[in-house]
Amino acid sequence: MIDINIEKRLKGYAGAGILKVKHQFAPGSITKIHGPSGAGKTTFLKIVAGLVRADAGKILVNNVTWLDSEHHINLSPQARRVGFVFQDYALFPNMSVIQHLEYATTDGLWIDRLLHLGKLETLTTHKPHHLSGGQQQRLAILRALAIRPQIILMDEPFSALDRAIKAELISDLKSVFSDLNATVLIVSHNPDELVGIADEEFYIAGV
């Protein structure tokens, strides 16, 4: 169970706003997060990952306190170890496909399975700038999965994929999520994306 109750002031082009989220995400569930641009969807994911500090609030994950502003508890991103897929992919330009995965894990069998999942087996020595947009996005997903996370946060993870690859990848990912027993939060703008896959939808309106 992820129990979240946080608040964060946002600075955007349209002026200041406040991100307020109070919600419980069931363990092993897949949640689609949507809402208008600038509402704070990316900031919300980064707060959960420990990459951005909330102004106030609590985050409780499987009975472990990750954040409690009143008691000055704020676990580092390294301690939280969530699988995070960044909207800009955040791939390391100096590393090849295989080096990205080896940086995250030493489990060779798991790396092989991930490469197969992302259909990148033949591109293991390629660096990001030699990959297409879709291949880069798949690598970003594989890298996030490489640490076998219990919580997976994905920020527009399928935006650069064509329809056929997306359908196949999402289906395969669901089986990996299930194997990891991971709780997954996916930010998506596309109304049709994740239909039949997400267990619930969560709307972030922003204030």
Partner: peptide
Amino acid sequence: LPQSLAQASYTLGKTQWQTFKSV
């Protein structure tokens, strides 16, 4: 460098020093 590079490394459990050296 995009901030997300270091952030991605942190989420993989890497320390600031490992991130500096390797990324």
